[in-house]
């Protein structure tokens, strides 16, 4: 480092620090483009709007897992349980007369979040394979319960007779998915913005710190175990919102919503997109759901061959997922450009 460089950095270190965190919090151009493009999909001729709203819902679901896995570093093999609980809570409300969707969504988030808090308290000391097993086991327990409580949940057939009132008492859910698309988009976007703020806050930084080195966080006096249950609660509430959205936009809730298969799928989606990036879930959902729609139309049986192959390739060669790999490539290209002769 040259002497003048060092001097200039020493002169205004405070400004540099403030600028650094300000730039972390600032919305980037590509972020705005991303959301604008997603919204713009609606106006695309011939687009399947129901499919697009499913992409958005899965994106939100995968983002919820990202809070847990990407930011706090806790893997879960049972994340679908929160999705399913949100879906069924929204379904029950609609079935038994509370048809207003937005309050139903909040209530579903609340119930799923409470379950997440309890689950987080249970597992906050468990790590490694034990953690994978406990989350998987709890998922299976709830799945089994829903499947067997035929009188309550309709068992295998799913919940029947769900009625959802128009959004804001005006926008009716139609078969073309017009309301479904905008409802899913707006809810997902609002929850994304809130999650983004939460993760750019001191709490988000503390989550990353605990992911990187939980023992060191303890010696800084941080409530590391308490953060586990909080992260679980937030992730669960977001997953519950995704589940409620799916129920409300399709007026169905089925046991497959909380199957192990779904837990595995959401993990795959997040890993495809890349964990710890906030957008990884949405990117992964776009790739996964659109690919699923395309491949399944050709040969539904072999869909899992391709998704399995994709998974193997990603963990073998792009360990961090698509989004970070693209970022790396971009950084490398940019540094090559700027690394020319000094002039």
């Amino acid at each position: 480092m040259s002497a003048t460089e060092a001097a200039s950095q020493a002169a205004a270190p405070h400004e540099a620090g403030r600028d650094y965190f300000a730039s972390l919090a600032r919305w980037k151009v590509w972020e705005i483009l991303f959301w604008a493009t997603l919204a713009g999909c609606y106006f695309f001729p011939d687009i399947d709007r129901m499919l697009m709203s499913r992409v958005i819902i899965w994106g939100l679901f995968a983002m919820s897992l990202d809070v847990l896995l990407g930011y706090r570093g806790i893997p879960s093999l049972g994340h679908a349980v929160f999705f399913g609980v949100g879906a069924y809570v929204a379904g029950f409300l609609g079935k038994f007369g509370w048809t207003e969707p937005i309050s139903g969504l909040f209530f579903a988030m609340f119930v799923a979040g409470a379950l997440g808090l309890v689950m987080g308290k249970l597992v906050q000391r468990v790590t490694g394979v034990g953690l994978l097993m406990v989350t998987l086991g709890l998922n299976l327990i709830v799945f089994d319960f829903v499947l067997r409580s035929t009188e309550l949940t309709g068992g295998d057939d799913g919940l029947q007779g769900i009625v959802i009132a128009p959004v804001l008492n005006y926008f009716r859910f139609d078969i073309w998915g017009r309301t479904a698309f905008w409802y899913a988009f707006v809810v997902a976007f609002v929850l994304f913005v809130v999650t983004r703020m939460l993760l750019k806050s001191p709490f988000g930084l503390a989550l990353i710190g605990a992911r990187e080195n939980p023992r060191r966080m303890l010696t800084l006096g941080a409530p590391v175990e308490g953060d586990v249950s909080r992260a679980f609660m937030i992730a669960a509430a977001l997953a519950g919102a995704a589940g409620a959205l799916l129920t409300q936009t399709t007026q169905t809730a089925a046991p497959t919503y909380l199957s192990f298969q779904r837990s595995a799928d959401v993990l795959v989606i997040l890993i495809i997109g890349g964990a710890g990036r906030l957008y990884g879930g949405f990117i992964g959902a776009i790739v996964f759901i659109l690919l699923q729609d395309y491949v399944s139309a050709l040969s539904p049986v072999y869909w899992y061959f391709w998704i399995g192959l994709l998974l193997v390739i990603i963990v073998s060669f792009f360990r961090k997922g698509l989004l970070p790999s693209v970022e790396q490539l971009y950084d490398r290209l940019r540094s090559r450009k700027s690394a020319g002769p000094p002039g």
Binding site: A22, L24, K200, S201, P202, F203, L205, A206, G221, A222
Partner: peptide, 25 residues
């Protein structure tokens, strides 16, 4: 910088969930 901020935020008890960005500290 982020590491030291972790310590300072912890010392001041400001790491509870909130919607304030780190940049505001």
């Amino acid at each position: 910088l982020e590491s030291v901020m972790l310590a300072l935020l912890e010392r001041e008890g400001r790491s509870k969930p909130s919607l304030r960005t780190v940049a505001q500290e």
